[in-house]
Amino acid sequence: MAFLEVTDLAKSYGARDVLSGVNFTMEEGEFVSIVGASASGKTTFLKIVSGLVPATRGQVTMGGAAVTDFSPQAAIVFQNYSLLPWLSALENVRLAVEAAFPQYSRTQQNEQSEKYLKMVGLGGAISKKPSQLSGGMRQRVAIARAFAVEPRVMFLDEPFGALDALTRATLQQELARMCSQAARPVTALMITNNVDEAILLSDRILALGRGPAASLSPAVPVNLAKPRAADLLMHDDQAIRIRNRLAEFLTAGAESRKSLSRAAASALSKTVPLEA
């Protein structure tokens, strides 16, 4: 049995079907990304899998047990940082550490929080309030907060979506480094609208089709050695194949809606070899 299993998941808000017939599995130690256009139901999917929002139909299990609430073994990084503005960077991280490690002494909790803030390069800014930090630095605090509880699984909801391209690239490398430095292999499920970001970080990528009633594409494995360099991926053959294949999944729904002929779509796919 896989570590994380999603079976025949569906979610509707009233009469609107957001997700339908979603099946998904993930092993421990895997980094999996789900790419999809905005408003395709990606975030809804992640919220259901992590236990923040209940599904309308279907089941999610983690480690064999049904997911009904946000798991104590999980951590999540939100797109909009979600730091508490009245707490300093250290206090924000420590709030998570305190809840995750109640058995630690106050000193140990402080050390644990500082260790992870240093790891994301914020050793000198631990007493700053979020309003005194840039967007990139805020997201670093959020990443430190997620790693500091030493989660068994990490959920990333468009973690870099609100950042400028340059900061985004730096933080992607930072996240890759954090994952490789962690005490045990990090199991991570990332939601993103950026295919390159997914290729850079993931072992496997799935595309979420266009809504309404979106479902997942077959998985595309990424067998590139880590660490990966973003600039090399631009020209790597395998990366290009993966990118094309995902682009095809992502645009398939849109094209059929525009009632373009299927022939045109398949002609497009013949120009690029499909086997990743």
Partner: peptide, 16 residues
């Protein structure tokens, strides 16, 4: 809602 999510995700006790 963000703050409610943080409370839920960090599993804060009702007092905290």
């Amino acid at each position: 809602q963000d703050y409610h999510n943080v409370a839920k995700v960090l599993r804060l006790s009702p007092w905290r």
